[in-house]
Amino acid sequence: MTITANAPYEFTSHDRQEDFRGARLVYVGWNRHMMFASPYCWPLPPDTPFGALVEGPMAQAFGMHPDWKKIDWAKAEWTRNGEPFSPDPAKSLADNGVAHKDSLKFTTPGLDGIAGAGI
């Protein structure tokens, strides 16, 4: 559908990739760890290695959780915008196919949050 308006209505999106000075927005959320109230958002250069996202921004955001240190990253399961996704930590975000405003979620089998309650 398009908007019902009484005059031509053409505006660009406010969050195009070129608005972020070379970075692209990436969101990451941790499944079954509801203590973190939502996925978080970072602006990252597209040549950032995927592993650097995990060790840098993600560790800062999620590191407070006692499960964080126990994660076996080889077993972690990822989705990108809800679809299965297998990132290579050595490759860049761009080479892993992570586009501007993609939303990543990861599941850590065996780790089920505080007191195993999904939080």
Partner: peptide
């Protein structure tokens, strides 16, 4: 999806900060 032209203009807090 009914009026995408309108909502693409939203100023979301995190995005405003990063821009």
């Amino acid at each position: 999806e009914d009026e995408p032209e309108k909502y693409v203009q939203a100023n979301l807090g995190a995005h405003e900060l990063y821009k």
